[in-house]
Design a protein around this nucleic acid. Sequence first.
DNA 1: CAGATTAGTTCCGTACCATACATAATTATT
DNA 2: AATAATTATGTATGGTACGGAACTAATCTG
Lengths: 412, 412
Amino acid sequence: MEPLVAAGTQFMREVNAAAVLTRLRAEPSMSVSALAKAVGLSRQAVTRALNALAEEGLIEFGSLDRDSTRAGRPAQLVRFRAEAGHVLGVSISPQDLRVAVADLCGTVVASEAVQFGAHPSADEVVRTLLSTIERTLAAAGRTSLWFASIGTPGIVDPACGVIKLIPSMPGLTGDVLLNRLKEPLGCPIYLDNDVKLATQGERRPDAERREDSLVMLHWGERVGAGIVLNGELYRGASNDAGDIGFLDLFEDGGSPRSRHPHGLGPFEDRVGGEEIVRQATAAAGRAGDGEFLSRVEAAGERAFEAVLAAFADGTPAAVEAIDVVARRFAKGISVIRAILNPRLVVIGGPMARCGEPLLAALRRHLAGEPLDQPVLEVSALQQDAVVHGALLHSLDEIERTRFGLVRTPLSS
Amino acid sequence: MEPLVAAGTQFMREVNAAAVLTRLRAEPSMSVSALAKAVGLSRQAVTRALNALAEEGLIEFGSLDRDSTRAGRPAQLVRFRAEAGHVLGVSISPQDLRVAVADLCGTVVASEAVQFGAHPSADEVVRTLLSTIERTLAAAGRTSLWFASIGTPGIVDPACGVIKLIPSMPGLTGDVLLNRLKEPLGCPIYLDNDVKLATQGERRPDAERREDSLVMLHWGERVGAGIVLNGELYRGASNDAGDIGFLDLFEDGGSPRSRHPHGLGPFEDRVGGEEIVRQATAAAGRAGDGEFLSRVEAAGERAFEAVLAAFADGTPAAVEAIDVVARRFAKGISVIRAILNPRLVVIGGPMARCGEPLLAALRRHLAGEPLDQPVLEVSALQQDAVVHGALLHSLDEIERTRFGLVRTPLSS
DNA sequence: CAGATTAGTTCCGTACCATACATAATTATT
DNA sequence: AATAATTATGTATGGTACGGAACTAATCTG
């Protein structure tokens, strides 16, 4: 409800061009007359708009519609040129790097993933990123890049593109990433927390989006939530809404450990990767499963992944451990439910690999709750969730700034 | 971003009229030239828009600007006719009824409050409501009513104006209220839960509204929350977001009572009015304060209010009791903080009467939290919070439907 | 009282859209 | 095969809203 002003009649044309384009983007191709009928304008108004759009390269007049069985002069087909521009989605983590390029319809035209060695330096990350992006763009063909969205762990301020805190890759703190990518990419760059971007990727794509509400729970070594309400990401007053690692739900003093080991919050401490490993080894010790114990021991830093793999195999100690933390995690979900009442809760992050058995455990622990519980899912995209969310964010941004009504409004 | 279509040049005029009106509403009166400069249109365009608006009765050409010290022809002043229409705000509770009428600028021009006897019947409520509205409207003078918003306890579906569940006044269940008011009021009627309406009243009135986030915690016999995020009320997937009475934070089994007495949720059971009375009598028993005990006893159904009054007087047992529940309540706030990170938390409902001492207790219990905590306030409007929120909602609705850009768009 | 200054009004050209009519290309009918 | 019907496109005309320039109106200043 910004105070738009219709200064001059070209405003009208822009409104109509936006409407025509929006309608056309929903279809592979349409005739001018069909567009006019669908959009509610006269044919000639649509033609004018289409000419302007063709000038911009956003649409293309195709061949005649010879396939139609109907009588009469065949229609001139018009097509949205999805290849007129491309968007980039990037996911950065200490383990790997994922890059994808999509056209303006969201179709992924090229993607690549690169694994890092242990503890890559910031410079290595940036250089690998640049070369990977270059290769991916080359694979996508000669394209103009319109927007790039990048997800990283840690605390990010998307307004100025600055990484505030990133313990797993401290070298990326600040505007390093933005500065070194700005020139090579030559398009607006959006930086945000990976969980928040991934959450946007889980939104409903259809018309009901504005009504949608969902919470994505990243569950791994640490725990964090991305929150989408009324169809848009909610950030919170100081940009850390969804910091549920700091939920303090278990005051019964189950463990005598220090309050916040390694900077973990109370909830993470009771359901995160470290606790899962602890629970699993304890369970294995009770059951006398020396084979499993030594396997976890051998995994060293990757003990958590070893437990997850064992869970997939059905190893009893791992199953028992994950059931223990699932009970605690369910309590977190019930709290989120009471406050937010979301339609959907998606489990993402490493724990998503546990799949349906994990969901079953969570549902079991939630069964006694008095309120109706949200739909529970495991992220279908797994490791690609962040890249996917980043691509969708880029497309949203394009839609808002280039295809939307709010293109050249004069504000009062 | 609805697919608006500019069909015909009159669309342009409507957009411009809306812009002119929006600008004018921010000022007591303005000259045409000043408006043109402020809005970015030519003088003629503004004049045309003003003529149309004057036709509708929304503005008025006033006297010349004789106060101006500047040289030249004095300007013709234009004024927004706030008295062109009025809106109604109503609050219904089992104890009382509050009605207020405001003009289109939100200035309250008449209001009235009526106390009920114990347990009024639905018919009594409706009849009292009708006569009170009639008196209030009469006091406001000859006015046309544009919109009415009504807040009631219980579960309300605002989309269809139906009260789903209202244990304190079961006779109002269903569409009774809507049906009996529709004809006499002769304007759109909006029904919603009282806490949700009151919450909207606490939103920032300024331009930052779209960024604002706040939680209003109704704290009385029962506990519920209203949530405003990104400047708009958040309802949740099944319309019961903020049902924090059902938070289950205290699993240490402090009390051996049955799980959900009187339909109360676990959190309400540990911080609500009944528990406060229990704590207060227990404390008085320990301290041997027989005078206080008998005062509470004598209050009968109003024991909770007696304890609140005692707290205001500084009676030790009441202070002690409220400190106990404040500790528990603070835990609820910290959970809300971790998930939502709101800018502001407002305490409303009966407990708001405890004022600053209560806030001090809550802040004390929150001091140890690792995350920065939101601003804590007590509702300044107290019992008028719901009427105020209802008025604001009515005005918002008017702004959206009559003053906004989205007036007569053709949708595709 | 003349000139300066600011405000409001009138006229005209431009741009947009809608309606109506003419033309083009195809299918169905005779 | 010629003609009618159908559908899509292209072109002319009229109405309306905007902006700019020129003009009129009302006040102040010297």
